[in-house]
């Protein structure tokens, strides 16, 4: 199978890029794909924490790029899936420590060993974003159902198309179905329409995300929480499978859902 470099990006910060990258990467690996997750957020690394692999870091992507270690030494194997690896980045350097050319080279070195190379991009549209965009074969744009993040997603989608890295696919994260029903929240249809971009996943607001991040166990690794289910479906769509969109479950109780307070 030909390898694919997939960059997860958003424009606005804090919308769930790292959470999506960790869970989608893990879900792909649980499908038996060979996956490497690259933390592209130099200076503010977090993918190691979300994956629970922070205590295994010795070398990182910047060490490899600057010739202080071999490629394999900068990869941490995650034993929870057959072929899942994390390439952490440096916490005490800045975004310019790796340039677009170096990121492309890094991904090319990984291509022969992996089916999917997922890059967790930093927020913003500056240097770090362009570095992570450069090697991309496809892009996932994460947005929340909220005006400012959709607006920033639009800007990023434009930049992705200008760089001929499109078409971008959209992940709408932190949807609260009850609030959409009460018409307090933008619906997924509204967002897809204004962005004229195809949706690849809809991830509900899910309280299990916080607990899983506390523990360093991505939600897809255990359990069937609503967000986990959404991430598994996104992974299958990435492999090319046609997976119909399920009506959304909220993580609240049945009573909360009945009374619209989920």
């Amino acid at each position: 199978m030909k390898s694919a470099v997939i960059t997860v990006t958003s424009g606005k910060g804090g919308v769930g890029k790292t959470t999506c990258a960790a869970n989608i990467g893990s879900a792909l690996a649980l499908l038996g794909k060979r996956v490497v997750l690259i933390d592209g957020d130099i200076g503010l690394r977090n993918l190691d924490i979300v994956m629970g692999l922070e205590n295994r870091i010795v070398y990182d992507a910047v060490d490899f790029v600057e010739g202080r270690c071999r490629l394999r030494q900068a990869l941490i194997r995650d034993k929870r899936a057959p072929e899942l690896y994390l390439m952490p980045t440096a916490q005490t350097r800045d975004k310019s420590a790796i340039n677009a050319q170096q990121m492309k080279h890094l991904c090319d070195e990984l291509r022969s060993d992996f089916d999917y190379i997922l890059i967790d991009s930093p927020a913003g549209i500056e240097h770090g974003f362009h570095t992570c965009l450069a090697p991309a074969d496809r892009c996932l744009v994460v947005t929340n159902p909220e005006v400012s993040s959709v607006r920033d997603a639009d800007r990023v989608i434009g930049l992705i198309e200008a760089a001929e890295k499109g078409p971008a696919h959209l992940i709408i994260n932190r949807i609260v179905p009850a609030r959409v029903r009460r018409q307090e929240m933008l619906s997924t249809e509204d967002i897809a329409e204004v962005l004229s971009t195809e949706i690849i996943g809809i991830v509900p607001e899910d309280e299990n995300i916080l607990v899983s991040t506390n523990r360093g166990h991505p939600v897809v690794m255990n359990g069937k929480s609503p967000a986990a289910q959404a991430f598994h479906e996104i992974a299958r769509r990435i492999t090319g499978e046609i997976v119909p969109f399920q009506p959304l479950r909220s993580s609240g109780s049945i009573l909360q859902r009945l009374f619209g307070r989920a």
Partner: peptide, 16 residues
Amino acid sequence: RLRFVLIHDRAEIPPG
């Protein structure tokens, strides 16, 4: 976990 990563971040010593 937070305490652990902060100690290592501040000292610039990779945990592994």
